[in-house]
């Protein structure tokens, strides 16, 4: 723990020194004149239910990226759930996790305007939410269940992308994994194979439509048997200067039965002032594999004194009322 605090203090001192020149919060810093930038993010959250209170330093992550000619790289390492205090029925449990996990590590080759080849561990390019999954980049502390139950959130392997921006914008992604995860602790499924594709179409009015489908082999863990799981996801997003609407619906099945009949959410957000955002999200899922079925409505508010700092509160209304929950968080991108 002391090492982590020293590391953070060192980084803050470095950033403060850089601030004299060019540093802006949320933009990272360039290392000397090298094609290398570093940055990161922190998030802390709190939730309250009828039975439980939890205080958590959720994420402390460091990013490094850069490019040279047609090559670029990305490294993201993270202490996840670094420090957690849970109070249940008068009992307090404290947990530490000092293990540094590799969240992303990949090299890109930009062949030309249209083709990109990526090798390494990356966010699976499935749906829209999964591409920007960290607290500071979204407007609610929580993420929809459909972003956890349908597909592996990370893939370790190859990604090829074809994109065109000539008139209207579209992109085709093909992702291939035929090996172990680079860091299997940091994925929602433990997989050794994952094959999928996605097609994204964007209209001139900033309406984004996306379809994804694929199959992955879920290797045995936590009592789950090894099996091939097939998924499909449809997503839509519309954004203008004041509003954003996003929705995703997906399903997952094994060879013999539906493992998640459906999981969907739709979310609208309204920036009523530059620093103030309100959010309404409705979601529902029927997860047969884990025997979970729920309908959830969420209202939330985000205050961003400056964009890279977010203070959020939300209240979740669950169909199972005992799960109703209040959440709040503070997150910073640096």
């Amino acid at each position: 723990m002391n090492k982590i605090i020293t590391l953070l203090l060192g980084l803050l001192i470095y950033l403060h020194a850089e601030e004299e020149n060019t540093y802006k919060l949320g933009n990272g810093v360039q290392i000397a004149s090298l094609p290398m930038y570093i940055g990161g993010y922190i998030s802390m959250d709190y939730y309250h239910t009828d039975d439980e209170n939890r205080y958590r330093i959720d994420d402390i992550a460091f990013l490094s990226y850069g490019n040279h000619n047609k090559f670029s790289y990305m490294l993201e390492v993270e202490f996840q759930e670094l420090y957690t205090i849970t109070e249940t029925d008068g009992h307090t449990v404290t947990q530490n996790n000092n293990r540094l996990e590799i969240e992303r590590l990949y090299i890109d080759y930009n062949a030309n305007a249209n083709y990109l080849l990526r090798v390494g561990k990356y966010n699976s390019p499935i749906g829209f939410w999964n591409m920007l999954p960290i607290n500071i980049l979204r407007e609610t502390t929580s993420s929809p269940q459909s972003t956890y139950v349908i597909f592996p959130t990370f893939t370790t392997g190859i990604l090829t992308s074809f994109s065109s921006f000539k008139h209207e914008e579209y992109e085709i992604d093909i992702l291939l994994q035929h090996n172990q995860d680079l860091d299997s602790n940091y994925n929602n499924y433990v997989v050794d194979e994952h094959y999928g594709f996605g097609i994204t179409y964007t209209t001139k009015n900033d309406l984004h439509l996306k379809v994804n489908a694929g199959v992955f082999n879920n290797i045995p863990h936590n009592g789950l048997a090894s099996q091939n799981l097939y998924y499909a996801l449809l997503s839509a997003k519309y954004e203008n200067n004041n509003f954003e609407f996003i929705g995703e619906i997906g399903s997952q099945r094994s060879k013999h039965e539906a493992t998640t009949n459906y999981a969907w959410y739709t979310q609208g957000l309204y920036r009523f002032q530059e620093k103030h955002i309100t959010v309404l999200r409705v979601e529902s899922y029927d997860d047969k594999m884990n025997n979970n079925f729920e309908n959830i409505a969420i209202i939330g508010y985000t205050y961003r004194p400056t964009y890279p700092i977010a203070v959020k509160v939300e209240y979740q209304f669950h169909s199972n009322w005992s799960k109703n929950k209040f959440l709040s968080s503070l997150s910073v991108l640096f």
């Binding site: 949320g26 933009n27 990272g28 940055g39 993010y41 990013l63 990226y65 850069g66 490019n67 670029s72 790289y73 990305m74 591409m131 920007l132 960290i134 500071i136 980049l137 964009y307 890279p308 991108l333």
Partner: peptide
Amino acid sequence: WIRQHYLG
């Protein structure tokens, strides 16, 4: 651009 920083 904050989102792009996360994406490199």
